[in-house]
Amino acid sequence: MGSLAAPFDKGSAVSAPVLRTERLEKRFGGIVATDSVSLSIAPGARHALIGPNGAGKTTLVNLLTGVLPVSAGAVYLDEVDITRLPVHRRVARGMVRTFQISQLFRSLSPRETLALIVGQQRGLGRRWWGSLAREASVIERADQLLEQFRLASVRDVRTDQLAYGKRRLLEIAIALACEPRVLLLDEPVAGVPAGEREEILQTLAALPAQVSILLIEHDMELVFGFSRFITVLVNGSVLAEGEPAAIAADPRVKAVYLGSGAGHTP
């Protein structure tokens, strides 16, 4: 946390990346899902990762977070090698993700879910007595998140009974309950009605400037509105990288997107 004290300069790439991969590789049998990917995420980044379906975006997030073991290469968080660190230890270091397909605790309500995560976050996860209900500050933070993500009206409904849009909102609220420093968002607004998408992304964009965000998203409108840096992934490897204007003008990127039918004009 202390390393955040120094103010960083938005314009240049002086500061060391908060998250970095080195020639990362993942093979599933014969398929190379991640092909020698070297990626850097700057402190406070609003970094988008785009690419057609099957490009390996989700696999990359799984490698970064430790859900899948890497085939080769390395992952550095704050320049510390975390390639073999278990999933929960990476979370403890401040790297948190959302899932493309919502992963919720089905028998718990949104309020219980958030309270338990906030409790875990505050070091209560191993306490075998007492009740979360008595932890006023935990409940307060959970309720605050419920408000922020418009979940207050369904706070006591089992999550497996929630409407799709609410499930997506909870998915993101869960990630924020973990107080991330590095946030990996795997298609967070996929399937969310158009009106609410914008709003969710605004909430995310409004996160403290120190939080570094990697966003995977298909809607180019949103990507170009949100990000200050874009990486294009195709067939598991990096096709192009740069600021939004440069990416929009890149003929190779245009070819990929025209080819896959997802047209865009920034």
Binding site: V67, V87, V96, F99, I117, Q121, G125, I174, C178
Partner: peptide
Amino acid sequence: LRAAAVGI
């Protein structure tokens, strides 16, 4: 999967 992803 989610439990690990929130640090448990």
